[in-house]
Design a binder for these strands. Structure first.
Lengths: 235, 235
DNA sequence: ACAAAAGTGTTCCTAATACACCCATGA
DNA sequence: TCATGGGTGTATTAGGAACACTTTTGT
């Protein structure tokens, strides 16, 4: 019980690990860092780090997020799962609380800052990751991808991956990239408009062909029907 | 990064807390224990305890579960969320990984075993909990209730709360108790039969009126359509 | 024979799917 | 003027919701 003297127990280390997603070139990508130190030196791993004694888990995640991507706060962040296998870190007991984050590619500026132990930072397609990842990070990423796909079907989370203004086709491509399936243009638009979270702007995006209308994402007041709109099977 | 020397950091304590649900008397109930020690002496709290260095989080949860309820393994157990507010424990930094468990009431035998720090154990209706719970346990329970309700709508998790053989009315009452809404008998049966996870047995349950057929829950091979069956709005 | 719970079938309606054509622009 | 992506409407179908009556038993 809680009532036991906490100091009587040997304590595990606690870290947060981040699966930072973005979508570029029609592909879902995750940000990985190359480790410069043992264990798993030279292997790709999730960004993350130790939770400090005076910060909440989410604060820790957001701090690491900023350090790693150069984005200061505001990014979508959600707790994923806590991985606590006693052998997941070969050195000592480390329990990690995994988060996933969604980054609008236009704002992300991945970089190596401060961490001499990181020798490289790179976006990897979520479906062709390096074969050998550090720790149990492959498992964590796979889990995050599953959760993201699922979440996409019943929430408006996808907008986090787009700039403020976007066209419906861009939104559709985003969904297709994450779900890895083609969607029907007409049905997709019907669904997304039914959600009532799109605001038509007066601006148009010029391209080589007919200009496309730009939309903005608006968080509406909680609607009971909102969470029921799903993307499953929009084909 | 992971690469830092783990021992250089002060470590938080890590516990697991359990929201153990059952349904009796047409009500969803959660098992609470009365604390015999500070902090929160005399207050009701979730069962739980420190994670040992050599056991996984789930192992820790299952161990506590058995110690608290006298059920040896096999119970449905799912990781809920990890709560890590630095001030959630007034003494020291304690991060807790919350789990929720589902107990068939016929097998549960709540008791006080071994823990001199526990002065009482009791099932409380999830919707009328003691006003003052220890730590952030009210938040944890509320979250668990939300998750359970949600889970009920797209998985077969409800069967964990019933004995092996049950009638369809018993199953419906269970759903009604958790969702806190009346369901339409005909639609409920259609849905639940469409799930394809019920096996009609030849046995009947005798009562004061027309005997009811007893069913058994069968885990079918993974069916792609399975997860789409929902209970929302079965009214 | 009747009270009470078990059990079942049909209609209505909404939402999901599948599908094809016109529109506006730049080259 | 034509190639290309932008944009829209409709018919069909499946599933969710609403609803009422018959059956079986114990008393």
């Amino acid at each position: 019980m809680k009532a036991y003297d906490a100091s009587a127990f040997e304590k595990p280390s606690v870290t947060v690990d981040l699966v930072i997603f973005t979508v570029t070139d029609g592909e879902l990508k995750a940000l990985l860092i190359k480790r410069g130190q043992e264990p798993f030196a030279g292997k790709w791993a999730l960004p993350g780090g130790f939770v400090r004694m005076d910060e909440s888990l989410e604060d820790a995640a957001r701090r690491e997020l900023e350090e790693e991507t150069g984005i200061d706060g505001g990014m979508y962040l959600e707790q994923l799962y806590t991985f606590g296998d006693p052998k997941r870190d070969p050195r000592t007991r480390v329990i990690t609380v995994a988060y996933f984050a969604l980054a609008d590619p236009s704002t992300v500026n991945a970089r190596v800052t401060g961490h001499e132990q990181i020798t490289d930072v790179k976006w990897f397609p979520a479906h062709s990751l390096p074969p050998e990842l550090a720790f149990d990070h492959r498992k964590i990423i796979d889990y995050a991808v599953k959760r993201l796909k699922n979440k996409l079907e019943y929430t408006a989370v996808g907008f986090e991956l787009l700039p403020t203004l976007f066209t419906l086709t861009e939104l559709q491509r985003l969904y297709e990239a994450i779900l890895r399936e083609k969607l029907d243009k007409r049905n997709f638009r019907k669904k997304v408009e039914a959600m009532g979270i799109l605001e038509k702007t007066s601006r148009m995006k010029k391209g080589v062909h007919r200009p496309a209308r730009l939309y903005r994402f608006v968080r509406t007041k909680p609607r009971s029907t909102f969470s029921r709109v799903r993307f499953e099977g929009v084909r």
